[in-house]
């Protein structure tokens, strides 16, 4: 029986390993900590680091959408993998084909979808909707992280693509339906604005908060009309 294109692509990318210098670089990028922290630094820089008020507001919305996207993407993957038990295939090093495992790895979650890729692409998508340039930079970092995870032998390419697809879709979706969670977002951002730590929401006063949840408000208005 022939190998699937995913397996062949994995073996090709993973087969590139062997050069000590490139391996060390890929180990560094594929690490569980480096990319999330660097992306967090970028988000912090975006929050505080725009000269114009308009751009700062856009950046801050981007950071909010990214944070919400990461939260819901993680929740979705947790429910998919742990609660539903969706675990379609083992990790490459457990699947019985040729591989080079560049460093020792004990997985704590299923191979598909790649949680790392999901987090990085959720960050990138959220930021991209507020700041295209910064979003593109994070997309490049996310792609490099995904590539390095295949290179070191802990994910298949389809794991990375699946994680990225879920993250992009959910982050975009939750940006569109964030208003359903009112008044929580306005309240939290309003507190931050009062403490001079945010510039959104644009028009904010404590009296302007709609204290009823939005879905309930709509239902209540419908009943009355």
């Amino acid at each position: 029986m022939g190998m699937s294109p995913d397996w062949r692509l994995f073996e090709w990318v993973n087969g590139l390993s062997g050069n000590a210098l490139v391996d060390a670089l890929m180990k560094f990028i594929a690490n569980d900590y480096f990319v999330p922290v660097i992306v967090t630094f970028i988000l912090l820089g975006l929050w505080f680091g725009a000269r114009s008020l308009v751009q700062r507001r856009l950046n801050q919305w981007g950071v909010v959408w990214a944070a919400v996207g990461v939260g819901f993407t993680n929740l979705f993957i947790q429910v998919l993998n742990v609660n539903i038990g969706f675990d379609p295939w083992p990790r490459p090093f457990d699947a019985g084909h040729n591989y080079n495992l560049v460093f020792g790895y004990v997985p704590s979650d299923p191979s598909f979808p790649a949680n790392s890729a999901a987090v990085a692409f959720a960050f990138a998508t959220g930021v991209f909707m507020g700041n295209r340039k910064a979003g593109t930079v994070i997309y490049i970092i996310a792609t490099l992280w995904g590539f390095s995870r295949v290179y070191v032998g802990i994910h298949y390419p389809l794991d990375i693509l699946g994680g990225a697809f879920i993250a992009i879709l959910l982050t975009y979706l939750f940006k569109k339906v964030l208003f359903l969670f009112e008044p929580l977002p306005t309240l939290l951002l309003g507190i931050a604005k009062t403490l001079h730590l945010a510039d959104i929401p644009e028009e904010f006063s404590w009296k302007s908060i709609n204290w009823r949840p939005t879905i309930a408000t709509k239902w209540w208005r419908k009943e009355r009309s």
Partner: peptide, 14 residues
Amino acid sequence: LGSVGVLQIAASYN
């Protein structure tokens, strides 16, 4: 430490 560094860069830029 990294965040303090990022904040100093952002503060200097702004």
